[in-house]
């Protein structure tokens, strides 16, 4: 629900080579955190309206901490700068539930990463080592010193972890590296766009089930993912707010500090019933009768077919 995050505290903050900051987040009392898959990612709610997503670098077996590595981006949108300047040991940070991750199974795993894109594979490789598995290889393309050199050393550089420093030697041919991999191996990639295009081209002929590209995925929408954005007008208070695609009206209202009652979030309890005045709502609840729907809606499940929807708030 809107603005609801997991409360964590930065328990360790370390600055590494290449403008990379490692941040360990824990529950204030060391309680276990929600579980995650190897290389999953979380949103950090850094400030109002400033939400950034980072991959976890620690293995899921460490169930009481989320560890991320943030590379400072000069031209970044402020998230990495915030993480570098404002997060110190003891800083409270709200985070989302973990999502996504690198699928690992019984097959040999080959990871390809560019620069800071190595982060999810640091988690996945650490997980495999914990399982007693050594049948993985991580190829990291880096310009100069690799990010997270200490972690990479622990994971088995230079055998299991092959660092290709493109300042010291010619950039390896990704297509040739991929062609060397046996058909049964699972290949995964995380890195910048040009390298991604090369990876996708080189793996196009393989069984799709053996190829994974690690991308940040949006939080699961609570409403129909096809729901389109619209403007919600609050007639009495004169407010007008944008409801994003996949966002619920209730979330949009709560995000803007509009105090509406709510409870189940699933259109059954009836707590967030509102009167609507203009527009064309799409009802998703299971409590309103057809005649009630002509004037009322449930904010937790309703969407809008019109570009603007006016409610009596």
């Amino acid at each position: 629900m809107a603005g609801r995050t997991i409360r964590t505290v930065a328990t360790r903050v370390e600055d590494r080579c290449g403008g990379v900051r490692v941040i360990e987040l824990m529950d204030p009392e060391g309680w276990e955190l929600p579980p995650f898959r190897p290389g999953a990612h979380i949103d950090l709610h850094l400030a109002k309206g400033l939400v950034r997503t980072y991959s976890l670098i620690n293995p899921p077996e460490e169930n009481d901490r989320y560890v991320i590595a943030v590379k400072r981006e000069g031209a970044g949108r402020g998230g990495s700068a915030f993480a570098h300047e404002r997060i110190a040991q003891g800083t409270e940070v709200g985070v989302s539930l973990p999502r996504g991750g690198v699928p690992v199974d019984d097959r040999p795993q080959v990871f390809f990463a560019g620069g800071i894109g190595v982060t999810p594979f640091v988690s996945a490789a650490a997980h495999l080592l914990r399982m007693g598995r050594r049948d993985f290889t991580l190829h990291l393309m880096t310009r100069g010193t690799p990010p997270l050199a200490e972690e990479l050393a622990r994971l088995g550089a230079p055998e299991a972890v092959r660092i290709h420093d493109t300042q010291a030697a010619a950039r390896p041919d990704l297509a040739a590296l991929i062609a060397e991999q046996p058909e049964g191996a699972r290949l995964a990639f995380c890195g910048p766009a040009p390298m991604l295009a090369a990876f996708e081209a080189a793996t196009a002929g393989r069984d799709p089930d053996t190829v994974h590209v690690e991308r940040f995925i949006a939080s699961p929408p609570m409403v129909n993912p096809k729901a389109k954005p619209y403007t919600l007008v609050l007639r009495k208070s004169g407010l007008s707010l944008e409801v994003g695609a996949g966002q619920t009206m209730l979330d949009a209202l709560l995000d803007h500090g509009v105090d509406v009652p709510w409870s189940c979030g699933g259109g059954i309890c009836g707590a967030c019933r509102l009167r609507w005045l203009e527009g064309e709502p799409i009802h998703g609840d299971r409590v309103l009768r057809p005649d009630e729907r002509k004037t009322e809606l449930m904010a937790c499940t309703a969407q809008s077919a019109s570009d603007e929807l006016v409610v009596d708030l």
Partner: peptide, 10 residues
């Protein structure tokens, strides 16, 4: 019980 919202129950 659990200490906070979202955290696993112990």
């Amino acid at each position: 019980i659990t200490a906070r919202a979202f955290l696993p129950m112990r």
